[in-house]
């Protein structure tokens, strides 16, 4: 388990990163926390010729409340997100999801931007970004552009990021009153990648559920926003009844197409997703106050 030979370059600023991209194109790979990249290199599943270490680029770190947004630099460690008062106050869904991201040792090194950019289909952070309507900031030598998280994820480890771009920041809009989130994940062991998970966020006003976003991970090739299922849930409104849940299960069966893997067939994972959907909605509605049925 030794990697293929590679050249290591420590970048002191983004300009240096872009220069490496220009010189080496696809053969250059950004090294951030390394929690996914290093095992992949050691297993010889990937063979970049140049590793560009961005860990010294301070401008990529930090969590800031900026008007109606929380801006989190790509190099911010999972642990910093987990411990952030700003995140806990304004992005409770992210705070709820973060303990599911691996173990303490991995969270100490792993970065938010790394997780968002890698686009592992079973990872928590991409799903939360989609559920929260986050915007991702991409920079290259040519400048900066932004992409909505729900447009960023294109397929299995496929994103809108071009090889000459670095994901520098995620911007999460702060929701007004009435918005609530819920996060449900099933993993075989504490800290494992999800077998199936759902990040839910919606608005509850006078007992009526609206603007619901249900995002599934560990199911399809990337974090999957399930619009039809959300509509089925909203149509029920409150009180939340077994009938609503039955309709919602059917909608999810229509809409979601989970990939079979070691932990379950399509049918098994769909069943788990249905279970977690029910639990997420119950939790969300319970947070909105009032009785929950079903």
């Amino acid at each position: 388990m030794k990697p293929y030979p590679f050249k290591y370059v420590r970048a002191e600023g983004l300009a240096a990163v872009f220069q490496q991209f220009e010189e080496h194109g696809d053969d250059a790979q950004v090294l951030a926390g390394g929690q996914s990249l290093m095992p992949v290199l050691n297993m010889r599943l990937s063979a970049p010729r140049v590793l560009v270490d961005i860990n010294r680029i301070e401008e990529l770190r930090g969590i800031a409340l900026d008007g109606g947004e929380v801006r989190i630099g790509a190099l911010t460690r999972h642990r910093e997100v987990l411990e952030s008062e700003v995140v806990r106050t304004h992005l409770p869904l992210l705070a709820e999801a973060m303990p599911h991201v691996a173990h303490v040792a991995v969270r100490n090194r792993g970065t938010l931007g790394g997780s968002l950019a890698l686009a592992d289909p079973a990872a928590e952070m991409p799903a939360c970004a989609v559920a929260l309507g986050a915007t991702l900031v991409l920079r290259s030598a040519a400048g900066e552009r932004t992409v909505a998280a729900e447009d960023f994820y294109q397929g299995l480890y496929e994103t809108e990021r071009r090889p000459d771009e670095v994901l520098t920041e995620a911007r999460y809009p702060i929701a007004g009153p009435g918005y609530h989130g819920a996060f449900q994940e099933f993993a075989r062991r504490q800290g494992d990648f999800a077998v199936v998970g759902v990040a839910a966020r919606g608005r509850v006003e006078s007992g009526v559920l609206s603007e619901l976003r249900l995002v599934y991970f560990g199911c399809e090739g990337h974090a999957r926003l399930a619009r039809q299922t959300a509509l089925a849930a909203e149509a029920g409104g409150r009180p939340y009844t077994p009938q609503v849940f039955a309709a919602l299960k059917d909608a999810l069966a229509e809409e979601l197409d989970p990939m079979e893997n070691m932990h379950g067939s399509r049918a098994t994972k769909l069943h788990m997703a249905q279970t977690l959907t029910g639990r997420a909605l119950q939790a969300l509605l319970a947070r909105a106050g009032g009785a929950v049925h079903g």
Binding site: M43, R188, R189, Q190, D192, M262
Partner: peptide, 28 residues
């Protein structure tokens, strides 16, 4: 509850890494 060397019918072990082969950890 966890440990299994999963093989397919062609005799390929499908979970031959600690990412996929599960051993119980302290939390379990």
């Amino acid at each position: 509850l966890y440990e299994e060397s999963v093989y397919n019918n062609e005799g390929q072990m499908l979970n031959a890494s600690l990412a996929d082969y599960l051993v119980p950890m302290a939390a379990e």
